[in-house]
Design a binder for these strands. Structure first.
Lengths: 239, 239
DNA sequence: CGCACCTTTGACACTAGTCAATTTGGGTGG
DNA sequence: CCACCCAAATTGACTAGTGTCAAAGGTGCG
């Protein structure tokens, strides 16, 4: 990460795209996005839908998006949550393979795929950064496959809370209090459960004093070790 | 990653690695692997385990691998099957994020990551191919998340058979007869089901004449449209 | 203040998991 | 060639964990 001290901050409305502040082409990912246009989304507003042409790559500044797929009969599976710092829209297809919708008020920056590709051609290390970001996405996807394929309801919720906790920690939010910038429905569609089961799982974790519900979307992870044990499936007769 | 210009040969078969047929550095992915060392794996033999240092990238020639993660208590989730033509071991981490095990007699070629990275630096289009392969893996992972998170047992098996069918078609195996180079246990661990449930689902599909079991691992997809409807969740009161 | 929407809680149904027995298939040795 | 053996697959009976349906709180906004 580089110093953000001198970065031109965008303010509210006009959101001009960029002014060529220096003649040198941007070479780092951070520099690319510093000159990128800002966009705001209201909760439930879509950034793009599955099948739409893939025109831009986005970086979440604040708020959160969910990336999801839907089946013909309406069942929805959220494949990942994009939180501040995350890139959205990577990949090589001509069209998006998932839909992207804000789950809370969200600010993000957008960069035309063409511009990014060109910058990557000029600077291979930038290309590597994109490769790395995609690799991280795949890593997260594998973790979710494990969770959804093997864990029971409480295990899934425990794993989810720990994962969100780790991500906020990596963004500097120390401490054991985490904010969930999404509804129970979103969590359910992410974990492959129903809202009722998610709600019941929260209640059980609360009752057993492993977590504390400060608000419905603000959770204190009181006992992370216990949460980890639950996520790993203690409570079984061991294998 | 260091340069392993003299690629480590696996013992066993003669299978000489390469004869420098031309002095020009290989530039396409296919060329890179044509000069790569061959390796053979027996069923159940591991190529690498989760956490092992990531030293090589592999391409499956014949046979099949499963890539999986295991939980502390032994539950296993297969994250993908690598079939002929597929690349294994991509990504940027220092160590593998999954284990890789042959599910049938398998022949593959291995390329040191350092050599591949170097080749990619010389030819950006090769780097793009790797990026594309990783993007495809992510795409497949998302499909599996949808399957495991939202579909019922028969829906999962139907979707699995169709996916395998599409993949063999892409490799030139036309027709509706597919070979499953893995056990029922592997299929179960891939779909997040038990072997009993997988077996019962096969039986139901067979009974309703949607598939025909030529051998336990050779299936004829008699009615692909019906299979697709099943995978999409017809049989529900529509949403 | 009251209306929506989200969340929580309860009662019941049903899918898939568990446990157990049987059948099938492939390989080995007499 | 056949008998046997082991592993994998199938089938059955029963159970547990989630989903479904329904209703009752909470919370925020107009």
């Amino acid at each position: 990460m580089l110093s953000l001290s001198t970065i031109p901050q965008e303010r509210a409305a006009p959101e001009r795209a960029w002014q060529p502040q220096s003649r040198s082409a941007p070479s780092t990912l951070a520099e690319c996005f510093q000159i990128a246009a800002v966009r705001r989304l209201e909760p439930r507003e879509h950034l793009f839908c599955e099948g739409d042409p893939r025109t831009h790559v986005y970086r979440v500044e604040t708020g959160a998006l969910c990336l999801y797929k839907v089946m013909a009969d309406g069942r929805r599976q959220i494949v990942s949550f994009a939180l501040p710092g995350d890139l959205v829209g990577l990949g090589t297809g001509l069209s998006h393979m998932v839909s992207a919708q804000a789950t809370s008020p969200t600010r993000l920056r957008s960069l035309a795929t063409g511009a990014l590709d060109q910058a990557a051609r000029q600077d291979p290390s930038l290309g590597h950064k994109l490769y790395e970001a995609l690799s991280d996405d795949l890593h997260s996807a594998c973790d979710l496959i494990l969770t959804v394929g093997q864990r029971g309801a409480i295990e899934r919720v425990a794993a989810f809370l720990l994962a969100i906790g780790r991500r906020s920690a990596r963004r500097g939010q120390a401490g054991s209090i985490i904010v969930l910038p999404m509804t129970r429905t979103d969590i359910a569609d992410f974990l492959g459960l129903t809202i009722e089961t998610v709600s019941r799982s929260f209640t059980k974790l609360k009752t057993s004093s492993v977590i504390r519900l400060i608000e419905t979307s603000v959770v204190e992870l009181v006992d992370k070790e216990a949460l980890q044990r639950l996520a790993d499936g203690a409570e079984r007769e061991a294998a």
